[in-house]
Structure formats: C-alpha cells, structure tokens
C-alpha cells in the first residue's frame, strides 16, 4: 500500500512504535499518519481533516504530542512513537484513562478518541491534578463531532484521581 512507486523519492527509515522497532521504506512525501496506518497497519490513529485542525491523528513523538498528519514519516526516522495501540498493558488491561473513558461515556462514535487519549496522556503527565477548565483547554485542539465533551472531561478528572492514587 505504501511501497514507494518506481522512481519516487524514497528512503529507508526506522521507527520505534509502542516499543517495537520497524524498518520501512517510504516515499518521502508520506505523512507519519499514513505510514502508521497503511505501512504498519496501526489503524487506531485516525485521520479526520488531514490539515491539523481536528486532532484525531495526535500521537506522541519522543514523548511530545504532535499531529501525525503534519509530519512526514521520514522526519520521524529514529524517533519513538506512541499511538493509541500502545496505551493498554501487554495483557490487554486498559490504561486508567481508557477505563475512565469507558466508565464515563467519554466516547460516542469513537472517532476522536485516539487523539483525545494521546493528548490527555501528555496533559496528565504534566498536570496530575487538573481542574475542569484546564482539561477543556487541553482538548481545545481536538474536535469531537458527537459533541460529547462533558463525558470526556469527567473521565479525565476521574482518571487523574485514579492515577494520583496509584501512580
């Protein structure tokens, strides 16, 4: 699917995604989002707008959140990437934030969820005890077209409590 077309400008890159190393050859114009989804089959990262507005494609690049539609895959060469597939424990136990989303109806159609979760994982790392206003500000760059923000904010505050209790 993402194999470079004959004659296309291409490079071999190494990505460590959710702790697993991948060596892939990509066209240099391939976005990181398309590389994750089509090249590596990690379709948990969603693409909504593909121009940096909706936030659904947010991943962590070396620990910092970034729009994966606004990065070229070649720019992530050598980087450690975390996608939504990397949040649960290896035995399948959901991350406390994922559990809280489930408990508080923090997802409706689920399309925005991967970007919401990744954005909030970074946010809770920096702000272990946020108030609701800070959570709303943090997800200001993530669109939920179901407009289910109340559940997302409630889930985040609950997850923060759980994560403080059992860090």
């Amino acid at each position: 699917m993402t194999a470079p077309a004959p004659g296309a400008d291409a490079r071999r890159i190494t990505l460590t995604v959710n702790g697993r190393r991948h060596d892939v050859e990509v066209e240099t114009r391939l976005t990181l989002a398309d590389c994750l989804r089509h090249g590596l089959g990690l379709t948990g990262t969603h693409l909504g707008c593909e121009h940096g507005v909706c936030g659904a494609c947010t991943v962590l690049v070396d620990g910092r959140s970034a729009r994966s539609c606004l990065m070229l895959a070649v720019q992530a060469n050598g980087a450690a990437i975390t996608t939504v597939e990397g949040l649960a424990a290896s035995d399948g136990t959901l991350h406390p934030l994922q559990q809280a989303f489930q408990a508080h109806h923090g997802l409706q159609c689920g399309f925005c969820t991967p970007g919401m979760l990744i954005t909030l994982i970074e946010f809770l790392g920096d702000h272990p005890d946020p108030d609701a206003a800070a959570v709303r500000e943090a997800i200001g760059g993530n669109l939920c077209r179901c407009t289910g923000y109340q559940g997302i904010v409630a889930a985040t505050l609950d997850a923060a409590r759980r994560m403080r209790a059992a860090p």
Partner: peptide, 9 residues
Amino acid sequence: VGHRQTRNR
C-alpha cells in the same frame, strides 16, 4: 498560538 500539539512542532 494554536494548541499544545502544534506548539510542540
């Protein structure tokens, strides 16, 4: 300026 995800880059 934008959001955390865009300011990071």
